[in-house]
Design a protein around this nucleic acid. Structure first.
Lengths: 348, 348
DNA sequence: CTGAAAGCGCTTACAG
DNA sequence: CTGAAAGCGCTTACAG
């Protein structure tokens, strides 16, 4: 692989001059510039980013630690993060925590070792020592989707409270009274907040949320299956299962199907996070949609602002309820077509 | 951030000694080792991977350029790649080509600039100049899933030929005679091979594959929708649509649904690539499953073999047909339960 | 406008 | 067993 020395030799100039034309430094003669460019072309030279990073102390790279690559929500988030980063001149390295705090720390450490310029994290837990140290230690950092309370780090996320209230109103209107939730880990903000929002919304209707109706999942499919099984084994099973993310909803569907039961006839289902497949499941799943792409872009902008010395901005966007058929048919259908239309209701 | 010099000062030794204990070099006294370790601990020192890479000329990093992050197949592949790489002591940086050759080249270039030790690619086209140069240029490289003919690079992939034959047998047995395919880009191997396998299997049953029944997609959902629309507009629409990947199947479902038509009553559907959601779509989708995890692991092993100077091995694994209900009910149901069982038939 | 030189943080022969 | 020194490929004051 040709180095800057080779280019300098080929062009008959010093490495300093080569470096200057490569970095668009103004004080280079047109002649020197042309010779260097020709040499670069002839040798197929590409600057060594490793050497450049060591010297400049910046990698123009962002680290993104997501909770689970198999979760379409995070995959969509990752895509928008990469797009926005690329537009701003940064690359991104993705680490998949697979919902395991240990693996999350592994990736954070590895990313830090590579001296990424900034870190985007959706924490899988309440804050490991490493994560806390990193946040306090001056590395530019922003939380996306999930965050860690008590640390001074910008947060970019969706607020699902209003959408959950809309969901409960929808369920109540359909006549459901026994509502259960498959929650995410209590140590994560989305794990606890979604339960709290659900509980509060239920309270508005005078409905309880008994412990037996709060199942502890981990945001992955298998836990949704297991918890739903537990619900179905109850002497008085719930009429509705609200899965706190799309993968646990998948698991819930597995559990229901395994018993030969039907949604929504035997049990209703709703999910946090909307994904394209929910339109085509049997039945289409009522879900709470996040503005995922916008979250990713806002998170990158906040992080790049920090990196480049501008004040970063925390952002909270609204999630919205998307009603489909998995919780039952509307009591008073007004649709004129045989097939009920998909309804997109926006909160606030 | 503490550097090796700080550690050396703290421990009262030279940086060489610090480096030696960090790299488990045998000739270090127990005393020096202990002092260095204590200093590392006290300072929270972490070696700078950038500097180390520059010096050793290896990054212990693999590049993975996948065709589309939003495709669950590639996401599953990426996950297994990262797992196996981690087990072998490597990190992986993922680049998402989003099925665009330009974006693919952008990521290849960026990965090369970072001096990754090896490259894993699922090419989105027939071979850009950059890709060809890279393959010939000595960078350890292996193709996964898709490959570029005519270059001497190991290939790890699934062979779907037998499974496609099984699929056609299944469709024929169900009475279908007009079969159409939504193909991927002809410039990709999976784009052209799946069409060829389909055409050959049809020929065995004396069935033609007219041009009108070959729709040109790009492996993304929107193209599946568009092509299926075209099929449905035909004077004589096909009885079956075979989508060459799961995202185009999603698009096909969208198109069918938009017309208020039903699968398989109005038109049957099958897909290449099996994903968890296919169990829960309406109806469950008959699909060809690849041993995705094993492909990812085998690809990493081949690449690491190349990097570490061992002869790499190309691997071809069989895909298999998973029959569900999207092509119609079996003619002679032998199941005793009301609900037909999911059948997993393994080819060969 | 240009080049010689220092230095980023490591690793590794080379001497001792 | 240990340290001084060179060098990986760049960038960037500093002189001229």
């Amino acid at each position: 692989m040709a180095s800057i020395k080779d280019v300098a030799a080929e062009a008959g100039v010093s490495v300093a001059t080569v470096s200057r034309v490569l970095n668009d430094h103004p004080s280079v003669s047109a002649d020197a510039r042309a010779r260097v460019l020709a040499a670069v072309e002839a040798l197929g030279y590409r600057p060594n980013a490793v050497a450049r990073s060591l010297r400049t102390d910046q990698t123009r790279t962002l680290g993104l630690v997501i909770s689970d690559v198999l979760n379409p929500y995070f995959t969509t988030l990752a895509r928008s993060v990469e797009e926005e980063a690329r537009a701003l001149g940064y690359s991104v390295i993705i680490g998949n925590a697979d919902e395991q705090p240990d693996l999350q720390d592994h990736h954070v450490r590895s990313l830090l070792d590579r001296r990424i310029d900034g870190l985007l994290v959706s924490p899988t837990d309440g804050g490991s020592p490493l994560m806390l140290d990193t946040a306090r230690g001056g590395t530019p950092m922003v939380f996306v989707d999930r965050w860690i309370p008590g640390v001074d780090v910008p947060v970019v996320r969706a607020d699902g409270r209003a959408a959950v209230r809309d969901l409960v109103a929808h369920l109540y209107g359909l006549g459901h009274r026994r509502l259960a939730i498959v929650a995410g880990p209590a140590a994560t903000t989305t794990g606890s907040e979604r339960v709290e929002a659900f509980r509060e919304a239920l309270a508005e209707y005078g409905l309880p949320l008994p412990d037996a109706y709060i199942g502890q999942g981990d945001f992955q499919a298998e836990s949704g299956r297991r918890v739903t099984d537990t619900f179905l084994d109850l002497a008085e099973p719930p009429e509705v299962v609200f899965a706190a993310d799309n993968l646990m909803a998948l698991g819930a569907l597995d559990a229901v199907r395994a018993r030969g039961m039907r949604v929504p006839g035997d049990i209703a289902l709703a999910a946090f996070d909307d994904i394209p497949w929910f339109v085509h499941t049997d039945p289409p799943v009522t879900a709470i949609a996040q503005p995922t792409g916008e979250l990713g872009r806002a998170a990158v902008r906040a992080l790049v602002d920090m990196i480049e010395g501008r004040p970063p901005q925390s952002v909270t966007l609204a999630a919205r309820l998307v009603v489909r058929r998995s919780c039952g048919e509307p009591a008073a259908p007004t649709a004129t077509s045989a097939q009920p239309p998909v309804t997109n209701r926006s909160t606030s």
